[in-house]
């Protein structure tokens, strides 16, 4: 039995900046995880369906456009609607501190802003993965 943590790194919405997402994807790969990357401009439905087919343990959302209150929340809501409760959701990007409590209430376990050391993200995932 060789269990590996599988992570979906997804870019919802319209912004075209995925350097941060790629850095995180690479760091998670180097930490021994299997990382599925979606590429840019994904809808919440695409992200959730991909999370299901890929049977991931973690969904990591990256957004720099400011639409996180809509799009992150949509992903969390869709997962709940499909009765999926064992997937850890984390977010990153340009997220104002004031929005963090709302996101956490919606089911985003943690939000990582610019400058977060990647090791912190790796250890958060390892500690909080739900299965």
């Amino acid at each position: 039995m060789v269990k590996k943590i599988r992570v979906l790194v997804a870019k919802p919405g319209l912004d075209g900046h995925d350097r941060g997402a790629k850095i995180v994807a690479r760091a998670l790969r180097d930490a021994g995880m299997e990382v599925v990357y979606t590429g840019l401009h994904q809808t919440a439905e695409q992200i959730v369906n991909t999370a299901i087919q890929e049977d991931v343990d973690v969904v990591g959302l990256s957004l720099l456009s400011g639409a996180h209150l809509t799009l992150f929340v949509d992903v969390a809501r869709l997962l709940k609607e499909k009765d999926i409760h064992d997937v850890l959701i984390v977010g990153g990007g340009i997220i104002p501190q004031d929005d963090v409590p709302t996101l956490k209430k919606a089911g985003i376990a943690e939000v990582f802003g610019p400058g977060t050391p990647v090791d912190e993200i790796v250890s958060f995932i390892k500690k909080n993965v739900k299965r």
Partner: peptide, 24 residues
């Protein structure tokens, strides 16, 4: 590291909402 970056889906995302397709 034992890790992997699985990036083939990027070219196929249009199919991810089609219930007649399963991608892994």
């Amino acid at each position: 590291s034992g890790g992997a970056l699985l990036g083939d889906r990027i070219r196929m995302m249009e199919l991810s909402t089609d219930s007649g397709v399963f991608i892994r």
